[in-house]
Simulated scan of single mutants.
Amino acid sequence: MAASPFLVVLDADSTLIRNEVIELIADEAGRGPEVAAATEAAMRGEVDFATSLRSRVEALRGVPVTAFARVLARIEPTPGVRELVDAVHARGGTVAVVSGGFHEVLDTVAPDLGVDLWRANRLHVDEGMLTGLVDGDIVDAEGKAAALREWAGELDVPLRSTIAIGDGANDLRMMDAAGLGLAFNAKPAVRAQANLVVGPVDLRAVIPLLP
């Protein structure tokens, strides 16, 4: 891929899209409310993200992979996301997404929204059913920051020319690593530590901040 002058990295759940995907999958298992409460605690930074994710994924055991079609049908892109992606591309930049969510959904959603690069967790599957385990290393706070640095290096983009956009506590290291960390639709702890807070839940508000 040709080097780009800048890189924008977004979180997925509640940033690129309005939904928390793990909650949609949990609905398929009849465990939506308990998983939603655990997700909220993790995003506030009250519990370790990796530990919380493993426990929440355990609640998904037995969900058939065919349920992903129903989950994808419920995904709502965040207002302004397509306009932001178009604006980044028009300026010669690259759009990436790194998520504590799942490739099983992001592999469809990201290219549909024009995202160039993405990374997420993978759910372990056996005989067409989720096993309740995460397959491989968990994308946690440090994994998000590492992805931003890795992509910036591959694209020959200096870190000062990167923008990270997120809402939860597991986005803070990525936001700190970036040249500009934006709190979007964010929890109080994230708003307190971000370089800037984007007020409206509309990603078009980020466009004036692009290089």
Rank of each mutant, 00 (worst) to 15 (best):
T162M: 02
G101P: 03
D140G: 13
L133N: 10
A87M: 02
A87R: 01
D116F: 12
A12E: 07
V125N: 04
I17E: 01
D13N: 12
D107R: 15
A192M: 09
V71E: 00
M43T: 09
A164W: 05
G80W: 08
L113Q: 03
A141C: 09
L84G: 06
M175P: 00
L209I: 14
D167H: 08
A186D: 00
G93I: 07
L117M: 09
T162A: 03
G45L: 04
G114W: 11
Q193M: 09
P188F: 04
G128P: 11
A3P: 02
V47R: 14
A147W: 14
S161E: 15
L180R: 12
S161P: 04
E20R: 10
E23K: 03
R204N: 05
L53E: 02
E150S: 14
D171T: 11
A145V: 05
F49C: 01
L117I: 13
V201W: 08
D48S: 12
A42F: 05
G32L: 14
R74Q: 15
L10C: 13
T78H: 05
A189R: 14
R91E: 13
E127H: 12
E34D: 11
A110Q: 04
L106E: 03
G153A: 15
G199N: 11
D11Y: 02
E20D: 12
T51N: 12
V109S: 09
P79V: 02
V105P: 00
P208I: 11
G128F: 07
F102Q: 01
V8T: 01
L196A: 15
R31F: 06
S4R: 12
T51D: 15
A26F: 04
D171M: 08
A183T: 03
A67D: 03
D171H: 09
V134E: 05
L113V: 12
G128R: 08
P5C: 12
E83R: 12
D116M: 01
T66E: 13
N19W: 00
R56C: 09
I25F: 06
E20T: 11
D202W: 05
L203I: 04
S52T: 14
D13F: 06
V88Y: 00
H89K: 13
L60G: 06
